[in-house]
Simulated scan of single mutants.
Amino acid sequence: MHHHPYNRKPITVFSFFFLIYHIPQPIEARNPSQFTIKPSRHNVNIPEIKRHLHRFGYLQRNNNNVSFEQALSRYQKNLGLPITGKPDSDTLSHVRLPRCGFPDDVDSKTPPFHTKQKYVYFPGRPRWTRDDNIPLQLTYAFSQENLTPYLTPTQIRRVFRHAFAKWASVIPVSFVETEDYDTADIKIGFFAGDHGDGEPFDGVLGVLAHTFSPENGRLHLDKAETWAVDFHEEKSTVAVDLESVAVHEIGHVLGLGHSSAKDAAMYPTLKPRSKKVDLNVDDVVGVQSLYGTNPNFNLSGLLASETSTNLAADGKLVRSEGMIYSTLSTLFVLGFLNL
């Protein structure tokens, strides 16, 4: 049946809002080069999953008290996945994601006032202390013999300066670069394969980096990775954002374990060609419980920004306090009301 165009009912402001509100889920543009995984039981088998659980602390070879299902359930809980105890699609996809090499299964005891926390500590809650230096100052240096061919020393130094600044902005700790690698508190380098610390790297993707608990200070990155600071310049489909990994590993240097909050900097996995360089509330509360609060930092501002997500410049839809809206539609309605 043919309808004359002039017989169509106009969209009112109310019906326009109704359409916006009932969009079922956020919509955002996807980068076609973004790393994706379509798991199946054929490409991730049970032995591989067991090796993964052994590697990251969920199964102990000499401990028969923990079943595969129990270990898998704990893995799912720690990564913020649906807890099924079965190798379902969500779990299978995470098994092969690039990630930090530090085990997830660490001490989860936290202060009782923070009952919804997802951050954890190293066993024993170690932290950096300096009796004669308040506020705390830590030095860091780069191994000149162990760099990456993908970036210049200047680029590497700039990335880490930004990454350290993220943590320094929320706690009373400052980070100062030094040329003396041997005496620096934090020692940073890119290493390949077995490099003498008992934690060999595994090549492209897989484990991206690892760090040791305070006050060890060693921060090692896998030299085999295609490290990047600008995805417009580095076109590799397996490129890894250096600042995202640096922010994460510095959290370990300070004493934080892995968070189960997927938007936290301390979440253990990171897809190629993706960035996660900002601290969320879970990261901040976790590190402040170890070191206290930077007097210039305002937690309420961060809480507000996470409660009401800033509108993105690309027009993607975001949810804020139960309502979905977009930059384009909001401007349209405001303009209509001002007519």
Rank of each mutant, 00 (worst) to 15 (best):
P103W: 10
D182R: 01
D104E: 13
A192Q: 09
D185F: 01
Y291G: 00
N216A: 13
L334E: 07
F332V: 06
R99G: 05
G301R: 06
F201P: 02
Y140A: 02
V284N: 04
P200T: 14
S244H: 06
Y325P: 00
I23K: 09
G124S: 08
G196E: 12
R8P: 00
V173N: 05
N43Q: 10
N298S: 09
L317H: 02
K316R: 13
M323I: 14
V44P: 09
P153C: 03
V44L: 11
T178Q: 03
L334F: 04
V318H: 08
K50I: 12
V240H: 09
P5V: 14
N63C: 06
D180E: 12
P98T: 10
Q34F: 05
L19P: 01
D107N: 11
H232A: 15
T307Y: 05
T178N: 02
G292F: 00
V318Y: 06
N298Y: 07
S143A: 14
E249F: 04
A165W: 04
T293R: 13
T84L: 15
N64P: 00
Y150N: 12
H252N: 03
D90G: 09
A163L: 04
R30Q: 08
L254A: 10
N62W: 09
A312F: 08
L205W: 04
V204H: 02
S305A: 15
Q76N: 08
S40Y: 06
G57A: 07
R218Q: 13
C100D: 12
T307I: 07
E306P: 03
H4E: 12
S329P: 01
A304C: 03
A246P: 05
V229R: 11
H248M: 11
I27E: 03
I20F: 01
T330Q: 09
G101W: 09
S236D: 12
P47F: 08
P172L: 02
L138S: 03
R74S: 13
F160Y: 05
D104R: 04
R127N: 08
Y267L: 10
V95M: 11
A228T: 02
V318G: 00
R273T: 00
S67Q: 04
T330A: 04
G189E: 03
L19T: 03
F35M: 12
P112H: 07
H52S: 11
H52T: 13
T309N: 13
K223P: 06
V95E: 13
G85R: 09
V176H: 14
I27D: 00
Q155V: 01
T327S: 09
Q34G: 08
V204A: 05
A165R: 13
N7C: 15
A312M: 13
D107P: 03
F201T: 02
K109I: 15
L92G: 05
S143C: 15
F336S: 14
I324D: 11
T84R: 10
P112S: 14
Y121G: 05
D263H: 09
S33C: 05
P295Y: 06
